[in-house]
Each structure stands twice: as structure tokens, then as C-alpha cells.
Amino acid sequence: SEIVKHAEEALERGEFVRIEHNGRVIEIRNEEALEELRRWVEK
């Protein structure tokens, strides 16, 4: 997914991403959060 790709690229640069999706906000700061995002987006 485009969202996950964006988050992965930001993590590689040492940045973090805040994503709003279906009214929820998730902050991607590490691999664990990235995995959570993947599960969340796939639903």
C-alpha cells in the first residue's frame, strides 16, 4: 500500500510519520509500529 511504503521510506531516513486513517491517528516511529500499520491497512 502507498501508506505503508511512505512510512517505510520515512523510517529508513530516520523520520517518523503520523498517519490519519478512518478517523484514527497512528504514529510510525519503529518497525513495531510499521507492522501495526500493515495489519491496520489490510483490514
Rank of each mutant, 00 (worst) to 15 (best):
S1Y: 14
S1R: 14
S1P: 11
S1T: 11
S1M: 13
S1N: 11
E2I: 10
E2C: 15
E2Y: 13
I3K: 12
I3A: 07
V4Q: 03
V4P: 02
V4E: 01
V4A: 04
V4M: 11
V4I: 15
V4R: 02
K5G: 04
K5D: 03
K5A: 08
K5H: 06
K5V: 05
K5S: 06
K5P: 02
H6Q: 14
H6N: 09
H6L: 15
H6K: 14
H6W: 15
H6T: 11
A7I: 08
A7N: 01
A7S: 03
A7C: 08
A7H: 01
A7F: 04
A7W: 04
A7T: 03
A7K: 01
A7M: 04
A7P: 02
A7V: 08
E8I: 13
E8N: 06
E8G: 08
E8H: 09
E8L: 14
E9D: 09
E9L: 13
E9H: 08
E9R: 12
E9Q: 13
E9G: 07
E9A: 14
E9P: 01
A10W: 05
A10T: 04
A10N: 03
A10H: 07
A10P: 01
L11A: 02
L11T: 01
L11K: 02
L11E: 01
E12I: 12
E12S: 15
E12A: 15
E12P: 02
R13F: 02
R13E: 02
R13M: 05
R13G: 03
R13Y: 02
R13N: 06
R13I: 04
R13H: 05
R13P: 01
G14F: 05
G14L: 04
G14E: 03
G14P: 01
E15R: 07
E15W: 09
E15C: 14
E15F: 08
E15V: 09
E15D: 10
E15L: 08
F16A: 07
F16E: 05
F16Q: 07
F16L: 09
F16Y: 11
F16N: 06
F16D: 03
V17D: 02
V17R: 03
V17W: 07
V17K: 03
V17T: 08
V17E: 03
R18H: 07
R18K: 12
R18W: 12
R18S: 10
I19T: 03
I19M: 05
I19A: 04
I19K: 00
E20W: 15
E20A: 08
E20M: 13
E20N: 08
E20F: 15
E20L: 14
E20D: 06
E20Q: 09
E20R: 11
H21S: 07
H21A: 07
H21L: 15
H21T: 06
H21V: 15
H21G: 01
H21Q: 05
H21Y: 15
H21N: 05
H21E: 03
H21R: 07
H21F: 15
N22D: 09
N22I: 06
N22A: 12
N22Y: 13
N22V: 06
N22G: 10
N22F: 14
N22R: 10
N22S: 07
N22P: 00
N22Q: 10
N22L: 12
G23Q: 03
G23H: 06
G23I: 00
G23F: 04
G23D: 04
G23E: 02
R24I: 11
R24H: 09
R24V: 10
R24S: 06
R24E: 07
R24Y: 12
R24K: 11
R24Q: 08
R24W: 13
V25Y: 09
V25F: 10
V25E: 05
V25M: 07
V25D: 02
V25C: 13
V25I: 13
I26S: 01
I26W: 15
I26M: 10
I26E: 01
I26N: 01
I26K: 01
I26A: 01
E27P: 03
E27W: 15
E27S: 06
I28D: 00
I28T: 00
I28S: 00
I28F: 03
I28N: 00
I28Q: 00
I28M: 03
I28G: 00
I28L: 05
R29W: 11
R29S: 10
R29V: 14
R29K: 11
R29Y: 11
R29N: 13
R29E: 07
R29F: 11
R29T: 13
N30V: 03
N30E: 04
E31L: 15
E31W: 15
E32D: 10
E32R: 09
E32G: 07
E32I: 08
E32A: 13
A33G: 12
A33C: 12
A33D: 15
A33M: 12
A33I: 06
A33N: 13
L34M: 06
L34D: 01
L34T: 00
L34C: 02
L34G: 00
L34I: 07
E35I: 08
E35S: 08
E35H: 07
E35L: 08
E35N: 11
E35C: 10
E36F: 12
E36R: 12
E36W: 15
E36L: 12
E36G: 06
E36I: 12
E36P: 01
L37H: 00
L37V: 03
L37W: 05
L37I: 03
L37Y: 07
L37F: 10
R38K: 10
R38T: 03
R38C: 03
R38E: 01
R39H: 09
R39Q: 12
R39C: 09
R39Y: 08
R39P: 00
R39W: 09
R39K: 13
R39S: 11
W40H: 04
W40E: 05
W40L: 09
W40M: 07
W40R: 04
W40F: 06
V41L: 12
V41E: 02
V41G: 02
V41K: 03
V41D: 01
E42L: 13
E42C: 15
E42G: 09
E42Y: 12
E42Q: 11
E42D: 10
E42V: 08
E42T: 12
E42S: 12
K43F: 14
K43N: 11
K43G: 12
K43E: 13
K43C: 11
K43Y: 14
